[in-house]
Design a protein around this nucleic acid. Sequence first.
DNA 1: TACAGTGCTTTTTTT
DNA 2: AAGCACTGTA
Length: 796
Amino acid sequence: MRNYLDELNEPQREAVSHINGPLMIVAGAGSGKTKVLTTRIAHLMANGVDSFNILALTFTNKAAAEMKERVEKILGNTEARNLYIGTFHSVFARILRAEANKIGYPNNFTIYDTDDAKSVVKTVINELDLDDKVYKPNVVYNRISAAKNDLISSAEYMNDWALQQEDARANRPQLGAIYDAYAKRCFKNGAMDFDDLLFKMYLLLKNNPESLSKYQRKFKYIMIDEYQDTNKAQYEIVKLLGAMHENVCVVGDDAQSIYSFRGATIENILQFNKDYDDVKVVKLEQNYRSTKSILNVANQVISNNKNQIQKNLFTTNDEGEKIRLVRTMTDNDEGKSVADTIQEQKLRNHYFNKDFAILYRTNAQSRSFEEALRRMGIAYRIYGGMSFYQRKEVKDMIAYLRIIVNPRDEEALKRIINYPVRGIGKTTLDKAVLFANDKNLSLWDILCNASMYGFKSGTLESIDNFVTMIKMFQSELNKKNAYDLAIIVGKSTNLVKELFNDKTSEGLARYENVQELLNSIKEFVDDPLIQGVINEDGEVINEEDELQSKQNTASLGAYLQQIVLLTDADDNKGESDVVKLMTIHAAKGLEFPVVFVGGMEETLFPNAMAINTREELEEERRLFYVAITRAKHKLWLTYANARYRFGQLQQNDSSRFLEEIPEEYLDKSYAGGGIKNTGNNWGSAAQRAQRGFGNNFGTAAAQAEKRYGAPPSKTSTPSYIVPKAPAKAVEHTPSADFVASDTSNLQEGQKVEHQKFGFGEVIKMEGAAHNPIATVKFELNGEKKIMLNYAKLRIL
DNA sequence: TACAGTGCTTTTTTT
DNA sequence: AAGCACTGTA
């Protein structure tokens, strides 16, 4: 075991060494919070606490996995795998699966994502004969979500005088009724939305003394990361769970509280020491991440907020460079400027793509950056926005799997009942739903007994064929694993074939996405241990042992539950060398050597939706604080005079936050010497942009070239990092006897020939068994990754 | 029943 | 700009 305490500073050690009793760690940005959390878990275990008795709630699943790994490294054993670590949502989903019968749910309940939930909202609004122009599904959903996060049930909602008044004034008196119908429909469908995972968990503990006591006894030590972003539901659950032992450790930073829109309340952390007696408070104030310039700017900006815990964040790091301010004409110019600067920094300062992050307030802003990066051939990846699992083709495939696990899942059923087209149209579906509501049966029940409901004979046949097919899948599930089943689904529905036949580039992408989904299922099936579905002995982990007979169902159910709870940050494909683009919210907890914050404009950041109260504005400022403190070495703030929004070029003033930055830390030479957009005589930004003017300062790369000379040509020995240009293949003429070999057993070390790249040696094999990827070192063309399913290789 | 075309609305962040 | 609901035609 490492002497881990020696690797900590004084307050960090103090926090780690505190074993029993409530503990609040106020951890400033970059103060080694994760290190403290992991070390404390290791310390608990080293002092005799059983790993089975520790619960740690993190912000992302990836953070959870990393923590486990780091604890293992410190302790030098594998005890950490017994820890209960995960996000609030995934940990509670797991517990709710085990305890589902206590609250009347099936074990394999479906988790509805936001799209599913909104669709249910829409459905019940229509069924209640309400106008969806008045009751906008979006707004209604948000109200319901807020209520749940405040632990208000639909019954309580309808009886709450204040809420009723509020809705009456807003001209939507039926909101409570919609909430009620929505909740009932979800229950009937055997489904929970994201908020239910918290709400139902609370109800379980509140109403079932045995369950409460069971989990109180199990979780003797509780740790919660990002406590400033917990909402009332989370707060009450933690209070219930921790009530027996009071070994609750919360870590957070009030200055980084940025999730009030989903019910988080900063009060939870501000008031923590009133929730328990004798709360030990430790402040981590030394920042190990950023330069003095960056940290000073951050401190200065946040000091404009009134409501905060006093702390003095400092660093012994270098002074670093000034923060660069860049003003451009349009959002497209902003993109170009950032891409140029990245190129320039790569050449001049030896940075890799992965050292850069571009952060912004809204997902829509990614477009201009994306285009500019693509044009310059800089590899990038966008986090957030339309995630992989939200794509139509992926959701369609998943919908089939959902139906197999839980046929009551009406949303999934509606999605695929006529996709691919099989003659069950809207009329038929509406009719079936009407019957289902009328008889209080599930849509699936109606379809199974369709002959009782007087459908036309042709339609009846289509329905029967569909039902027979789904039933066939369900029976296969008891014999086959999730992956094999998914393949069967893809084949018998013609879904995969249909995508395969679409040869447009979008069609190709869709086909690849489905293949990728299949890969991910394969990975899951091959290694269920990682997912916590079975234990080391191969048994299904389930406290009540109810699922044992249906291991495959459990496994597929677990797969479906975990993918819907995946965070973007959880995706590990991000390890490659790419520039990362994401919202500031998504960047929380991360750090990057060089950070660009785009769109520093009024109405964008602070966002027009969030400037109506002091609370809102202060949250926007905290968001800016989070953005600044992601940067380790260098920080650029950029803004455009005008940008396209809803197809219109719109002018904006520069962000008020820019004026809160002390002059001495700012390099304004790329912002025309000032911050304000107003006060120049160049005509309106819109006019100039429409006349096609670029920004007046030339590209950063061009300027760098002027000052430092042209970058060395590729033939000289490079003293800098060569950007990954799509290197041209050195010509190779295939041997006369070239025949593609069977590469299914290709091994490392084997010599091969490629028609274009020439002769080489296999130096690495990776990828899933059905989609192997070989890294080959070619004599003439260097290392290439070759997908064996597509490329032709001759084994020598 | 299926699909193409038209016109209308959309303004934030996410598990 | 883009996605969605609605309408009209095959």
